[in-house]
């Protein structure tokens, strides 16, 4: 890829290479604002990350964070990858049912994913198989819930003085 390639060219290259290698395991790709966003099947996520890192130069894991999709009872992972060489960022998403919140660890690819995975475990209850030290990180160890899930109330639900249901959303 020449150095003067546009962002759209780079996006297209990533899409082409990934679909050629993984076929329908790449479920969707779209451009959201300035980023290419890929949705990948859960069982291929580790291979896709390894491929992006080794073959397509995405050397830098910017973020990895958990998500809770309450409307479809699923937990998700969202990663932002950055290729310093090409000045190119992408977003990769994957999902798993709430009943089976397990992903492979990515610490073998990027050591920095260690604490990001611990954060996802702490707040969403996502487990990472093969993680060297999967403990809670910001909350106390005997915290009884996964607080960033949508069903965890922010405040004491019996309080009435802070109800803002008037506003309809």
């Amino acid at each position: 890829m020449p150095a003067f390639a546009t962002k759209a060219d780079r996006d297209q290259l990533v899409i082409d290479r990934l679909t050629a290698t993984f076929g329908d395991k790449v479920l969707a790709h779209e451009r959201q604002y300035d980023l290419l966003c890929l949705t990948v099947r859960k069982d291929a996520i580790h291979e896709v990350f390894a491929f992006l890192k080794d073959q397509l130069d995405f050397n830098f894991l910017t973020t990895l964070c958990g998500m809770h999709y309450a409307e479809r009872d699923a937990l998700g992972l969202v990663a932002h990858l950055h290729s310093f060489r090409n000045g190119h960022r992408i977003r990769v998403k994957t999902e798993t049912p709430l009943k089976d919140p397990v992903f492979p660890t990515f610490t073998d690819l990027w050591p920095t994913s260690n604490w990001m995975e611990r954060e996802a475990f702490d707040f969403f209850g996502i487990r990472f198989t093969g993680h060297p030290d999967l403990r809670r990180i910001l909350n106390m160890e005997d915290f009884p819930a996964f607080p960033l899930r949508k069903d965890y109330p922010l405040e004491d639900p019996t309080r009435e003085d802070k109800d803002d249901s008037f506003f309809g959303r």
């Binding site: 050397n59 830098f60 894991l61 910017t62 310093f84 990027w110 050591p111 920095t112």
Partner: peptide, 8 residues
């Protein structure tokens, strides 16, 4: 540098 990049 390589460790620094790996560690984000």
């Amino acid at each position: 540098a390589d460790r620094a990049l790996a560690y984000g």
